[in-house]
Amino acid sequence: MPEPFSSSTTHRAGSGPDLPPLPASATELGHLLQRVATGDRSAFAKVYEATVPKLLGTVLRILNNRGWAEEVVHDVYIKIWQKAGQFDAGKASPITWMVTIARNSAIDELRKQPARGRAPEEELEQVLSTEPNAQSRLEDQQTVNRLNLCLEELEKDRRDMVRMAYLNGWSRVDLATHFDQPVNTIKTWLHRALKQLKGCLSP
């Protein structure tokens, strides 16, 4: 499998002239993270500036509660400060690494307190109305397009399940309630959808 994020700095032009400039390229962010690993506060401030809207957007979409989301993002940046030395550019782009920390933290919090501040059915319109990807700002546009093409190949329900889970943090149980299916059926559907995606994305 090719390195999907390895060329994310070189495709800005492909994003189109209408988009605001990138806050920082992947290469710049990677260098800043290396400085953060040495305890450089000014580099940390720059990383924060460049990435906090994305991370807060990610966490807020999962938790659906502004105050809670900022608490989690606070802790996420503490983790980034402490773990910057573990960032491995060979495994992920800097923004993917940070979004992964943010998503994992948000989903862990949500699983601990599922009732706090969310109403899954109300989010639904947002999930379903968002076109699979409009813009690419921090990632390689080709990689994004490729995933979107593969998602399009899934049945609509399966595609919605994957997006609700990834973007909104829905658990198997949430999905079972929404689709009015037993949890085991949801699990089976998820596995089929994931395998189909994997097959579609493999070279």
Binding site: P53, L56, V73, V99, P132, N133, L138, Y166
Partner: peptide, 29 residues
């Protein structure tokens, strides 16, 4: 799998934080 699904995060709409958030993070550090 993080590499495969990561591009899904592209459609997340960025949200500006409240102005005091960075200060709180710095104080914690």
């Amino acid at each position: 799998w993080e590499q495969r699904l990561g591009p899904l995060a592209e459609e997340v709409v960025p949200v500006a934080p409240t102005p005091g958030l960075y200060k709180r993070i710095e104080q914690k550090i």
